[in-house]
């Protein structure tokens, strides 16, 4: 569904990504782990079209999207959940939800979104800035699902959330997967990662250095945590 081949990215002279490659299959949830500064956020921004890669190729559903503008990628079914959740403080919950134009046939009708997220229904007229962190994260996920995204790019969605909210995020991601949605998930919480993901990539210094399955992650948890500096 999503193929990333040798993507490099720079900020001025500094190299943030150095030929990162990975794939995400249809209906697959894949996490990307790596210590702070490894290049995870930069990789998602390159995939979304918000940062121009210096080299490499990005293929979405068989189509080369490397040079495509961000808004066109979104319309092809890429859904972005940025690390700060990307909630518009000045837009109401409902405006936040309905801002992205519907991308594909798999879009959720608003009624279904509100059924699945009763909290959002109750707060539909609230400004997005007044939601709690967990509610904002739910809104960020609901927003891309409503637009019919087929591949979600989620940047640390559980960061800073209470355990209840983390469980809810897990349910949403598993639900999306059941409907055939693919997810590339940046996640530092390894326990959580193994409950939602099929596979994992370890990113270090801008390069994918290891591909792991759930068993690897559980067996090598201590070593991985030490590597991540957690």
């Amino acid at each position: 569904m999503l193929e990333v081949e040798g993507v490099s990215a720079r900020y001025g002279e500094a190299t943030a990504l150095d030929g990162a490659s990975l794939t995400v299959g249809e209906g697959e949830v894949v996490t990307l782990v790596g210590r702070n500064g490894a290049g995870k956020t930069t990789l998602l921004r390159c995939l979304m079209g918000l940062h121009r890669p210096a080299a490499g190729r990005i293929v979405l559903a068989g189509r080369d999207i490397t040079g495509l503008a961000a808004h066109r990628r979104a319309r092809l079914g890429l859904g972005y959940v940025p690390d700060d959740r990307g909630i518009y403080a000045g837009l109401s919950v409902e405006e936040n939800l309905t801002l992205p134009p519907v991308a594909a046939g798999s879009a959720w009708p608003l009624a279904r979104v509100y059924e699945a997220f009763p909290v959002l229904a109750a707060r539909r007229r609230f400004p997005g800035g007044r939601l709690s962190g967990g509610e904002q994260q739910m809104l960020a996920l609901a927003r891309v699902l409503r637009a019919g995204a087929r591949v979600l790019l989620c940047d640390e969605p559980t960061e800073g959330l209470a355990p209840v909210a983390v469980r809810q995020i897990g349910e949403i991601l598993r639900g999306a997967k059941e409907h055939g949605v693919s997810v590339l998930l940046v996640e530092q919480n390894l326990r959580f990662a193994t409950t939602v993901a099929d596979r994992h990539y370890l990113l270090a210094q801008g390069r994918v250095v290891e591909a792991l399955d759930n068993r690897d992650v559980k067996q090598r948890e201590d070593e991985l945590l030490a590597h991540l500096g957690l």
Binding site: G49, H71, P100
Partner: peptide, 14 residues
């Protein structure tokens, strides 16, 4: 939306 977050708004297909 574009006023508040111009770059993000493009990532949402606008």
């Amino acid at each position: 939306a574009s006023t508040e977050r111009p770059e993000l708004t493009r990532a949402f297909g606008i």
